[in-house]
Write a protein that binds this DNA or RNA. Structure first.
Lengths: 362, 362
DNA sequence: CCACCCTGTGGAAACGTTTCCACTTTAGCC
DNA sequence: GGCTAAAGTGGAAACGTTTCCACAGGGTGG
């Protein structure tokens, strides 16, 4: 019925020449007379010949495939980056095998194992903690070229593309300071599991230290429903003069705005909120989210380019962190700090805050 | 330096047996004495032996890889689905090669070609229009098992997993009707390119026809900045009695809310807005978005399961559309229709609409 | 006690490529 | 016109695996 897929042998037979010649013609990898050239090309065309990549890969030990390992696609940041990787890879004839590790070290290792089994030529990845990462260890041991994204490893022997989280957070800190926010908090999910959160807190705190202000409160929350509200209530009890929140990512920032609203506080009138990442929806919501816009897509494509270029030269991507430009995007969620008196009530809006806290709207 | 990757031959040598025995032991694919079993296992362990998938695939003509073709990862809907596919595939030892086609038929075909070149065993995909799709044609011609997601093909010979868009849209229509929205509009991006948008409009319009009301206005917009605002201004001029918008997806719904705000209309007081998809942020924004929550993740994993199961039995996934349950989520963006007088002004808020239209807030 | 059948075994072919190498042929040059 | 060099060519090995097959040995049933 359906003729079995034609092989190079079939083409050779039809073109009346040896398989070596076919290979040379089709790959432009060696001399061939014009005559055989046209015969082979014609034969291949007629038969609808396509190379079998297995045979190719077996011989060359190259899969023309790069592995991608990210925590999740649920965060648009990673989704965008993956798309960037995919596009850049496609341009150079590489495919992308995708794995997600869900911020879990065990899963990370398993995912990497399957990538290795598929003999990916290289890997673009984000790990939960680049120092002491088993995954990076394995990649090194197996001599697999790789490039980190989002992570900013302190170990300079490794190749990475990202944004300067510390510097970006400094800018957020500076802006908040300029807007009069003398007491701020930093909100993060799973702070311990993310080097990025740590860097952001670091840069943020630096600015407050520089101005001899209180260190920003570190608010670590989890995804349990209501947890954020409780944490915020606690925050305002302990630090009633807090006027701004810096969330470690945009999704969390949006969640903060919602939680604040349910506590009867409005953004930015009572509290300013700044996010990080610059995801698309940040611009669609009201108030527009103030955030650091990061080039996630470019991060992915840059890393892929770096990696592919290195693979083609049969080497590793250049060591060192490439920092891509970011931009502070001043959305409506950030405004001048409301004047507060000592017990944290906004002077301009003398309504009883503790009362509104007790009576969340619905 | 680094010892070349051990092959099955090395294991055989070390275990003092033939390669056939090693293969049988390691794959549990044939008889082997206990003695050789332990020797082989030990040898493999000591050498850190890993199968070379190229050799395997070459022999078996199976790649244990499934291809994924979606329009984009920027829409969280697809990102979630891809993650579902990936997870389900991983469970069964399959990997995922990802390609994005950006709603473009040319790109779709190219992407599929690279998937085929990589000899994927099957494909999970979303195409722009499942009828007359070249991509599906190619898949059929090449006898590649495949399963659609999101699409709801009318051709019942094909396997697909999705939600019943028509029915879901009927429910939206019914809800809007019950809330007193007698004049509504349907907003879509690239209506012509999406069978899903068409289905949604169909179900929506059906309800309005059933109640002998005006057909919902069809508002086709594009992504050009400001286009949505213009379209809405036009809409309210021509159909001032419109009290509700049904957007073909959540991102668009959020954009609508923003555009409406910039036109001086508030949601839901002046206009109600309903989205479609149920993306995560829909619940974080204010007003919470009323939407149809669809199980994107499950859609992906279900499709992958179907496909993998079929592949293991060396057949195609069962023909027919599997409709997954969805849920109408009534967010704050939907409320009782404001009473309007004939020229479209909300009776309860007699501010001059045309004036506020001219003076968008910022 | 012999024929038989299982179990365990390893050699070898096959999968589709690429590429080395050795063999034509042709052209170029004195 | 002979020599060499280059260009064109195909055979065959190699990549690492699976699996068919043939064969050895030892138990069983007649």
């Amino acid at each position: 019925m359906l003729p079995n897929k034609p092989t190079i042998k079939d083409v050779a037979e039809r073109a009346g020449c040896g398989i070596a010649t076919v290979s040379r013609v089709l790959n432009n990898s060696g001399p061939a007379s014009v005559a055989s050239r046209v015969r082979v090309l014609a034969a291949a065309e007629e038969l609808g010949f396509k190379f079998n990549e297995f045979g190719r890969s077996l011989k060359s030990q190259r899969s023309k495939t790069i592995g991608v390992l990210v925590p999740t696609l649920s965060n648009p940041v990673f989704a965008d980056a993956v798309q960037g990787i995919q596009q850049a890879a496609a341009v150079h004839g590489y495919d992308v095998i995708l794995t997600c590790a869900d911020y879990d070290q065990m899963t990370e290792q398993k995912a990497l194992a399957t990538l290795l089994a598929k003999q990916v030529d290289g890997v673009v990845l984000t790990v939960s903690s680049p120092e002491n990462s088993k995954v990076l260890q394995v990649l090194n041991d197996n001599n697999i070229p790789h490039c980190l994204i989002f992570n900013q490893p302190t170990d300079s022997g490794i190749s990475a593309v990202g944004v300067d989280n510390v510097e970006a957070a400094r800018i957020v800190g500076q802006k908040l300071f300029e807007f009069g926010h003398l007491n701020a908090a930093f909100v993060a999910v799973q702070f311990a599991k993310s080097d990025r959160s740590a860097d952001r807190y670091k840069g943020f705190a630096e600015i407050y230290a520089k101005h001899n202000l209180n260190q920003p409160t570190l608010l670590e929350v989890d995804y349990a429903p209501g947890d954020l509200e409780l944490a915020l209530i606690d925050l305002f009890e302990k630090s009633p003069s807090t006027t701004a929140l810096f969330a470690s990512n945009d999704m969390l920032a949006l969640a903060c705005i919602r939680a604040l609203r349910s506590l009867g506080k409005s953004v930015p009138e009572d509290i300013s909120v700044v996010g990080f990442d610059g995801i698309a929806v940040a611009d669609l919501v009201h108030p527009k989210l103030a955030t650091i816009a990061t080039p996630c897509h470019d991060m992915g494509s840059k890393a892929a380019q770096l990696l592919v270029k290195a693979l083609q030269k049969n080497e590793k991507p250049p060591a060192g962190v490439i920092s891509l430009p970011f931009e502070f995007r001043c959305g409506e969620s950030l405004s001048i700090a409301a004047k507060k008196n000592s017990d944290g009530q906004a002077a301009t809006r003398p309504s009883d805050l503790s009362a509104t806290q007790m009576q969340p709207n619905k």
